[in-house]
Every structure is written in structure tokens, then in C-alpha cells.
């Protein structure tokens, strides 16, 4: 239970960082933290106490895996979501670098040519 709560705390911290910080690098870190909190949550979904890897080794009974094996699907999902996160991070950092070239600042409050 406490671990699920930790995932939520991480998520909220990431969102706070995203909203409150002006530096765009810090905003990027905020996004990454929220992503990691979701990954942690996904891993926790598949976790069970005393679980083993769901691989059938020699001399193992099938029932053993049914009893103790963890759910492998969330782990596959986490791998995919980490890769997607990497793609987004690379794009964010490259746009951030271009922004620095144009504006000579990382401060989001000074990057305000567009007003909604």
C-alpha cells in the first residue's frame, strides 16, 4: 500500500515541478518524473509478494508458476513506455536546445511571444 502511495507522491511532485518551475529544463525533469511514477505504478500492478519470474525452468512444476509467478504483461508495458518516454525526452531536449539558440534563455516566462 505504501508503495502505491509513493507512486502517487512522485506523480504529484512531477506535476508540481511542471506547473511551478519556470526553467524549461526543470519542466522537462517534471515530465520525466511523472512518467517514471506511472512506470513504477505499472510494475507494482504486476508485483506479488514472494513472486518469481514467470519462466518455466527445468524441473519446475507448472503449478509453481501459477502460484508464485508475477504477471509478465506489465513489465512488457513498462519497457514499451520507457522507450516512448525516451523518444519524447529526446524531442523535448532538442526543442529546448533550439529554444535556447533563439531566445538565449531557459526561462519560460521570457519565452512568451505567443499569447492565448
Amino acid at each position: 500500500m505504501i508503495l502505491y502511495f509513493l507512486a502517487l507522491v512522485l506523480f504529484v511532485m512531477g506535476l508540481y515541478c511542471l506547473v511551478a518551475k519556470k526553467n524549461i529544463i526543470k519542466k522537462i525533469i517534471g515530465i520525466v518524473i511523472t512518467e517514471y511514477s506511472i512506470n513504477l505504478f505499472l510494475v507494482l500492478v504486476g508485483w506479488r509478494k514472494g513472486g518469481i519470474a514467470p519462466i518455466l525452468l527445468k524441473g519446475m512444476q507448472k503449478s509453481e508458476i501459477v502460484e508464485k509467478g508475477v504477471d509478465p504483461l506489465p513489465q512488457a508495458l513498462v519497457l514499451t513506455s520507457i522507450v516512448i518516454g525516451l523518444g519524447v525526452l529526446a524531442l523535448m531536449v532538442s526543442i529546448c536546445l533550439r529554444l535556447y539558440e533563439k531566445y538565449k534563455t531557459f526561462d519560460m516566462s521570457e519565452i512568451n511571444r505567443l499569447r492565448g
Binding site: L18, I31, E35, V88, M92, I95, L99, L114
Partner: peptide, 17 residues
């Protein structure tokens, strides 16, 4: 350019959320 990058970054942050 300046505008495009700023719009893209905003979109990226909100889309990421």
C-alpha cells in the same frame, strides 16, 4: 523559428501530461 519552437514546446508539455 521563435514562434514555432515556443508553440511546439507548449504543445509538447501539455501533450506529455
Amino acid at each position: 523559428e521563435k514562434d514555432e519552437l515556443e508553440a511546439s514546446f507548449k504543445y509538447l508539455i501539455l501533450g506529455g501530461v
